[in-house]
Write a protein that binds this DNA or RNA. Structure first.
Length: 102
DNA sequence: CGCCCGGCGTGTA
DNA sequence: CTACACGCCGGGC
């Protein structure tokens, strides 16, 4: 990965993520792939991890491929993400997102 | 260079 | 549902 690529990757991810409509969600891998870098799901996760808490990005709409919140239940991140998702109409059971399966 | 670990992914049991 | 396997890629040491 060249520095150039990293920048593209990041901006792409941000762009795409910012365009994920309310009520929808996307997987880390999807995001990476759409950004032009398949198999970089973990890298996306790393990014989410660095986002400031006051970010305006819909990071909560990012879930793993099994459509589950990628945080152990009852952890900070888990709770915050769950809240946001529920506010957007999702039904969450444990770490799993139900309904609106599209 | 190797080894381990992560907001991951897919398959199988 | 859990539990592994194996693949992937950066980062830290």
């Amino acid at each position: 990965m060249t520095n150039q690529a990293i920048d593209n990757f990041k901006s792409q991810v941000f762009l795409i993520l910012n365009n994920v409509p309310r009520g929808e969600c996307i997987a880390y891998g999807e995001l990476a792939a759409l950004a032009g870098f398949p198999n970089h799901a973990r890298q996306v996760g790393a990014m989410m991890k660095n986002l400031p808490k006051d970010t305006n990005l819909p990071w909560h709409r990012v879930v793993n491929a099994r459509k589950r919140i990628s945080f152990p239940e009852n952890t900070e991140g888990y709770l915050r993400q769950k809240e946001k998702l529920e506010q957007e109409g999702w039904v969450i059971i444990g770490t799993k997102l139900a309904m609106k399966t599209d």
